[in-house]
C-alpha cells in the first residue's frame, strides 16, 4: 500500500463547491471536460492544448470487426461464470447502440465490467474492505444484433468508496466499451442507475457539465425487460458520434 499513502484533507463540501463552480452555463457541452480538477487524477493527465482538428483517413473510417469467433453467447450472462450463484439482485441491462444519425450499429462488440453487489471489484488494486464474491467476476461481452440491440444479465453493482477526497463515493455504475462503424466512434463510458443520491457528489459524473448530456448516461427502469421472479430490467440506449462514411460510399456495397 506504500505508494498509495497520501494525506487527503479535501472534503466533500470542497468538491461540491468546485463542481458548482464548473457547471456548464454556455453553449452545450456534450462530452466530459478533460480538464476537470474536482477529479484529482485528471490534473496531470489531460491535454492542455486544443485537440487538433483533422479529417479521418484510411483505417480511421473503418472499425475493427468482431464476430461469433470472438464472443460466446454465454459471455453476456455474468451470473453463470462460476459454479455457484452470485450474491445480490439480478438485473437485465439491455438497449440499442445507434450512430449519430440514429442508425443501428449492427454486429458490433460491447464489453462491460463492474463491481459486485457489495461494491467491490475483483481486482487486486481494489482495497475496499467489502467482500469479494467467488461467484462473480464482473466482466461480460456481447455482440449487437442486426438491429443494434444488446442484452446483459448481471448483478446490481454497489456504490463504493474511493480516495479522490474524504468520504468520496462513486454512484453505482457499469463500465461500457463500444465500437461503431468508424474507429472515430470508439467510446468507453459508464452507465448509471436512475435516482442515485450520489450523482450530485461525484466528480466523474459531474465532469459532464451539461445536465442534458449527463442524462444520457442514466439507464431507465423498464418493466418490459423485467423477468418475472428473476430480475429487474434496465434499458440503456447508447448513441455514438456520427459515422464519417456516407451510405453512398461505393465501398459500403462491396
Amino acid at each position: 500500500m506504500g505508494h498509495n499513502v497520501r494525506v487527503v484533507t479535501t472534503t466533500q463540501a470542497d468538491i461540491d463547491g468546485e463542481i458548482a463552480a464548473g457547471q456548464s452555463d454556455g453553449p452545450h457541452e456534450n462530452q466530459p471536460r478533460l480538464d476537470y480538477p474536482p477529479y484529482r487524477s485528471s490534473i496531470l493527465r489531460h491535454p492542455t492544448k486544443a485537440l487538433h482538428p483533422v479529417d479521418p483517413e484510411g483505417v480511421e473510417l473503418w472499425s475493427p470487426c468482431f464476430g461469433h469467433a470472438d464472443v460466446a453467447e454465454a459471455e453476456a450472462d455474468l451470473t453463470i461464470q462460476h459454479s455457484g450463484e452470485p450474491q445480490g439482485s439480478r438485473i437485465v441491462v439491455a438497449g440499442r447502440v445507434l450512430d449519430g444519425a440514429g442508425r443501428p450499429v449492427a454486429h458490433q462488440l460491447v464489453e462491460i465490467w463492474q463491481a459486485n453487489a457489495a461494491g467491490r471489484y475483483a481486482h487486486l488494486r481494489d482495497q475496499h474492505p467489502a467482500p469479494l464474491d467467488p461467484n462473480f467476476s464482473g466482466q461480460g461481452r456481447a455482440l449487437t444484433d442486426a438491429d443494434g440491440y444488446y442484452r446483459f444479465q448481471t448483478i446490481q453493482p454497489g456504490p463504493y468508496p474511493w480516495r479522490n477526497h474524504l468520504n468520496a463515493w462513486r454512484p453505482a455504475h457499469i463500465h461500457f466499451s463500444l465500437f461503431g462503424t468508424d474507429f472515430t466512434q470508439r467510446l468507453i463510458t459508464q452507465m448509471y442507475f436512475p435516482g442515485d443520491p450520489l450523482f450530485g457528489l461525484d466528480p466523474i459524473f459531474q465532469s459532464v457539465t451539461d445536465p442534458k448530456a449527463r442524462e444520457m448516461l442514466i439507464a431507465k427502469y423498464d418493466h418490459d425487460l423485467t423477468t418475472p421472479e428473476v430480475s429487474l430490467g434496465y434499458r440503456w440506449d447508447i448513441v455514438l458520434t456520427g459515422s464519417h462514411r456516407t451510405p453512398l460510399d461505393p465501398e459500403e456495397n462491396s
Binding site: 465490467w113 463510458t189 448530456a213
Partner: peptide, 18 residues
C-alpha cells in the same frame, strides 16, 4: 442525435478490457 458522453476507464479496467 447527440452522442453519449465518455467517462474514464478508471483504475479497474484490467477486469474488462485486456
Amino acid at each position: 442525435m447527440s452522442a453519449a458522453p465518455g467517462q474514464t476507464v478508471g483504475p479497474f479496467f484490467h477486469l474488462g478490457l485486456p
